[in-house]
Design a protein around this nucleic acid. Structure first.
Lengths: 191, 191, 191, 191
DNA sequence: CATGAATGAGCTTTCATTCAT
DNA sequence: CATGAATGAAAGCTCATTCAT
């Protein structure tokens, strides 16, 4: 409980700094200072900066998956489940802009590429929720006949620029707009 | 042919390094070395690193716009024009993966955010080709009634992860697949 | 005794290098090396080179003021006080030639000019000891009726070249000579 | 006539830049540009930057001596001659502030020290005008019995800070003030 | 376990000087 | 004689990481 306090503070500070200033704007000394710990202390919890960042990413990913699962039920109709995931994802992004900004940066860095590579090769467990949904959709001929990875891009590709534009204030995504955009995404993949 | 040589070499090296290693992986010394010039020489062509990167972006953007305009005609039917732009963009990305990777990094950096902001405010000339198309589509009630920025995200949002996955070898986008995915994007925005 | 050690060493090295070689001859790397610390260490004690130099100047100025005040008493006759200050200043200069050379360089640099400007405007605390003395001298009609700044130049202007010539070995200022020259300065300002 | 044109332009530009910005603010490229010549051209007239600066100093020194000699006559009374020199020097300084600022910087740099050293050793010809005057003054027992170098400091030491303060706008030296201050200097050295 | 002073490789940028044209 | 593109050593400064306390 004590130890995880510091660990948590460090991760939180890193998240804020990287999300707001980019990787450049988050030197270890600054993370330490804003976390109220000494620089050396960070290295007790994380072997090095790369590990810190990767663990931060993992935690966020876990939270996102959790948010997606909330209220998700296999019993609901297919379209309903799709819309649920899309709305939940977009809502999560704009509710936790720091998470979104960090994850975006992460994907757009050497870290992200290795991660994706590892995922595809099967080193790291994929989020089965999407795979399952798309597999079912293709099998049931509800979805267009594309490889999963393409379906994923078609279905959720728009959500990233949408969230970004919302966070930057270029557009306002209220609940109604969120629903309508995700429904548009559905038009993209539905057969 | 004379002065352009070195300038071009420097830009090309910067493009390669940044596309492959990110901004961090492209120190001026390395750009110089791989370009076969001295460090100081770079500063004869570019005031500083920021200017170098911005000019590189401008050049690439120019090429992309050019590629989009090629074969684009206002006389063609609306859907045809939309599909043309989508296919041309996706094709450009996977034909020039370095350009794609660089532009992606650029957009995901402070540079990119300022640029987007300036674009929206109207400081910098937008790519009128998209604006015009979407304006017409909304006016003619061919497209769903969304703000331009949302339409843009819906229509071309999927292209970025698609191109990325293709470049990383996670999927193969041949001409047929390109057409089919862009047609799916059309389903997303068409009314 | 702990932290002051390194800080002091750095200041001392900077003093020596700048006094002997000028600002050009004192790169941070050299200051670090001769101080027996790493370059980065200097930046733990001084935000940047400007700050280092300004703090060095402040310290020296403090010592000079201290030397002037030593044995200075308002109760002594006016002329006595004037001679005391002149002799103390000249003695200080030739006793601490490095201090003298540094202060000279400092005054002859952008630093010095800003400082003088700030002093005149009143931003920074002046050496009240001189101002008081001259104010009294003018009020009592002991001194010629000149602006303070002119009186200061007349009274102490000769001390700088004198100290310089002594330090460079062009002349030897023993105690007797010091007294006689300062008395000559007195003839310059006394009514 | 042509060649000396460029040479003159280069020297003039160097004078302006160094006087206004210091040695730091006068890179060869800038001197070249403002002189309307190419960088390489400077090296046709001056072996390197040191030589350029030293020659510039020599030229200015020549002009100063010339200004001092103007109206100077051995036939005039001693005191008259002394006052003439002091006033002429001070007037020259405030009439040609760029010259003054440059000469000051020069003296306060490694250049200046070597020069003084060379002067004393006798390598470089001294300005006999002062030496003669002081020699006569001491011999005739009009001046206090000090070494020449000390007399020089006493007599003209105040002029430097006076000129500086005038140029920086801290005090205004009109003709009347010039005369009065130089007369005060006379009090300093006269027996 | 926690600290934070110390490290030094590495970054961007400047500028006196050279030399092919 | 004149040019100015090219050079590269050297400057100020940053920051991930270590280690004695």
């Amino acid at each position: 409980m004590k130890k995880s306090d510091k660990r948590h503070d460090i991760l939180q500070t890193a998240l804020e700094l990287i999300a707001e200033q980019g990787f450049h704007g988050a030197p270890m000394a600054m993370i330490a200072e804003r976390s109220g710990v000494a620089v050396g202390t960070i290295y007790r919890y994380f072997e090095n900066k790369d590990v810190l960042i990767n663990e931060l990413y993992s935690e966020l990913e876990g939270k996102i998956v959790e948010a997606l699962r909330k209220g998700y039920s296999i019993k609901k109709p297919f379209r309903e489940r799709f819309l649920h995931l899309g709305r939940a994802l977009l809502r999560y992004f704009i509710t936790f802009p720091l998470h979104f900004r960090f994850v975006e940066q992460y994907h757009n860095s050497p870290y992200g590429v290795s991660l994706r590579r590892d995922r595809l090769i099967g080193k790291v467990g994929d989020h089965t929720i999407f795979t399952e949904l798309f597999a079912e959709g293709v099998a049931q001929q509800v979805l267009k006949d594309f490889p999963f990875i393409v379906l994923f891009a078609l279905a959720f590709g728009p959500l990233v620029p949408l969230a970004r534009d919302h966070i930057l204030g270029f557009v306002v995504l209220d609940n109604s707009m969120i629903s309508k955009t995700v429904e548009a995404c559905w038009d993209c993949v539905k057969r």
